[in-house]
């Protein structure tokens, strides 16, 4: 696993074939059983939005959705993801439009270097899937596994609340048009 599948340390091994749904596309990948989901996404599929900050579950830069729950992709073997549905940061935008959370992150200065942002976005996205009006405390709990080493967390809290408000208004509008 660390530091990735191209490392010289690695010996060639039997490949495993994995089928899963990534960002809405059914995908078939040949990789090695010891590859983590993180490096399968980055090296085998070119989805480099998901970052490796520690490869030990501590920093949250690698967080992706697996079957509707945020998990550390560095702590999961590729074959453990067989048959699952995965959403990465690349899957948040729809029809070439950024997700309201992504826009709010920019508008509230929720990042500087951006390294923690993909994982942070996924943890916040997971929160908004189950809570459309989170409190500051609930947001801090949701991102307790995501470390930001250069910006801090206040901007993230503001971004999530801004995006939540936008999504609520949108939903009300759709409900009205539905009637």
């Amino acid at each position: 696993m660390l530091p990735g599948k191209n490392s010289e340390e690695r010996k060639p091994v039997d490949e495993v074939e994995i089928k899963l749904n990534i960002n809405g596309n059914v995908t078939q990948v040949k990789t090695e059983a010891s590859t983590t989901l993180l490096y399968m996404l980055r090296d085998d599929l070119g989805l480099t939005g998901t970052k490796d900050g520690c490869s030990s579950g501590d920093c949250g830069a690698c967080v992706v959705m697996v079957d509707n729950k945020p998990v550390n992709s560095c702590m999961m073997l590729a074959p453990q993801a067989e048959g699952t549905t995965v959403i990465t940061v690349e899957g948040l935008e729809k029809d070439d439009e950024l997700h309201p959370l992504q826009r709010a992150f920019g508008e509230t200065w929720a990042f500087q270097c951006g390294f923690c942002t993909p994982g942070m976005l996924i943890s916040c996205y997971a929160l908004l899937e189950t809570n459309d009006d989170p409190s500051r405390e609930e947001i801090l709990t949701a991102i307790a596994g995501n470390f930001c080493r250069c910006t801090g967390y206040q901007g993230v809290v503001n971004a999530v609340q801004r995006a939540a408000a936008e999504l609520r208004t949108k939903n009300e509008d759709t409900e009205k048009t539905d009637v």
């Binding site: 702590m75 999961m76 943890s123 997971a126 709990t141 949701a142 991102i143 307790a144 596994g145």
Partner: peptide, 9 residues
């Protein structure tokens, strides 16, 4: 215990 993504696994 840890944070939400670890608790999910």
């Amino acid at each position: 215990f840890a944070g939400p993504p670890i608790r999910n696994r």
